[in-house]
Amino acid sequence: MRLLLIRHGQTPSNLKHLLDTAVPGPGLTPLGQEQAVALPQALATEKIEALYASTLLRTQLTAAPLAAATGLEVQVRDGIRELAAGDLEMRGDEEAAAAYLATAFAWSAGDVERRMPGGENGVEALGRFDSVVAEAAASGARTVAMVSHGAAVRMWVAARADNVDVDHASSHPLRNTGVVVLSGSPELGWEAQVWEDRPLGPAEASPEDSGPAGAGVTVPTT
């Protein structure tokens, strides 16, 4: 299966650098709407046969133009929502962002019992994302697009793709509507083929305008 993991368009909370992970969450900024509208053209060469979005409003709004262009129904699943920030929710300081991403990438590295302060642990976060991927694979669709979230996508890819390690995922930002393309299956494993090489939208936001979930971070090795 070819799996396209797409980060949602820009939100007001991204601009404020807030860890805004609760449902339903904010909508899109005007730029975020432009990014969503640009997705069908950017992915025009992909023969998408199934389309998923998370339970947060921003992913469903991002997926809507792609659904209109492909004629596919958006399948909304809680499993691919953003990593719950717990006690860090709605904080916008660097310390909170660093703690959030360090916990997420610790899960990718195998420390799945570690818990986000006041939130979920890696077993729970990986398990729910895995379940949606497994559902998509079982559907028989050859190319699947999932509109998800920056930290969730980077964490899952670093944990599940054979050729992406924590160093790469943590140091390579994933901007709004950035795409990670993988090939494989839950049984045989995954290989990343593309990490955000398509510029999406008539105007491109800087990494600083994409919020903490998509930012680069240095993860301690000890």
Rank of each mutant, 00 (worst) to 15 (best):
A69Y: 06
A50P: 02
T21G: 06
T45E: 15
A125H: 01
E124G: 05
T29H: 09
M90G: 00
E124C: 09
D130N: 11
D87F: 06
D130M: 05
S131F: 00
V144N: 01
V23S: 05
A97V: 02
H17I: 02
S139N: 04
P117K: 05
V147K: 14
E120M: 11
V144I: 15
A98C: 12
T45R: 15
A106S: 15
S148A: 10
A63N: 09
G92C: 07
L101S: 08
P26E: 13
Y52T: 03
A106L: 11
L28V: 03
V37I: 13
A138W: 03
A125W: 00
L88D: 00
L101G: 08
L43I: 00
W107Y: 11
V76E: 13
I80G: 06
A106C: 07
R81A: 15
E120H: 13
R142P: 01
L66M: 14
R91A: 08
H149Y: 08
D130A: 02
V147P: 07
M146K: 06
E89G: 14
V74A: 12
Q33P: 01
T59I: 09
E120R: 15
R114L: 15
E82L: 04
L101I: 09
P26T: 14
P65T: 10
E49H: 02
V23N: 00
A134T: 09
R114T: 05
Q60Y: 04
A138E: 10
V112G: 00
I48C: 03
G127P: 06
F105I: 13
A137R: 03
